[in-house]
């Protein structure tokens, strides 16, 4: 349902910008005065200043994308390369295992990537990789301060991504699938 808000035509006085200017002046002056008296947001939240006290990351923050492991410590990624394809700045580079590469380290997957690199200098933290991943293997986590002294250092390889990503035992796609499948066996399908 769309709600139509009628715009009141501005009076001449309002169209001179004077009232808007005056209000703006008042607001900024108020904040300025408070700040000069020593108030500021960081203090009000009861926190310190940034480098000493790390920033409190809020829920749903999109930080750096990392690979995660499942509850058994297996690599979740199956090297489907969808994320590589969708990534707008082409930050992801995946080397698939190839026809005679090593098999996946978990039962219900065929393969896993031989190498998986994310160039954090290119990544724009858009979250498309997380959204596209069919295996729920890549997540944007809460790291916001990525620093390095060289460009090479900022290309995170598979080891590093998996280590940083940690275990996501909560999102167990295959368990859910199994349950769904099991539920479907007994699904009351009308058989005429």
């Amino acid at each position: 349902m769309t709600k139509v808000v009628d715009r009141k035509p501005l009076s001449f006085y309002e169209r001179t910008y004077v009232p808007a200017l005056w209000e703006g002046l008042k607001v900024t002056a108020r904040h300025f005065k408070r700040s000069v008296q020593g108030h500021n947001t960081a203090k009000e939240l009861g926190e310190g200043y940034y480098p000493e006290v790390p920033w409190r990351v809020s829920e749903g923050y999109r930080g750096a994308p990392y690979l995660v492991r499942d509850q058994d410590g297996h690599t979740k990624c199956v090297s489907c390369q969808l994320c590589e394809f969708v990534c707008p700045p082409k930050a992801i580079r995946i080397t698939p295992p190839g026809p005679d590469g090593p098999p996946a380290d978990r039962p219900n997957a065929e393969k896993m990537p031989r190498e998986f690199e994310i160039n954090m200098l290119r990544c724009i933290f858009c979250g498309l990789c997380q959204e596209v991943c069919p295996e729920e293997a890549i997540f944007l986590e809460d790291h916001y301060s990525l620093t390095g002294l060289t460009r090479e250092e900022m290309v995170f390889d598979k080891e590093r991504l998996l280590k940083l990503g940690g275990v996501h035992a909560g999102t167990q796609k295959w368990k859910n699938k199994l349950e769904e499948a099991a539920a479907q066996e007994s699904f009351p399908v009308a058989t005429h």
Binding site: T28, H31, F32, R34, S35, V36, H39, N40, T41, A42, E44, Y49
Partner: peptide
Amino acid sequence: VSAFIQDRV
């Protein structure tokens, strides 16, 4: 000034 107006330091 910008910091003070925006409640920063």
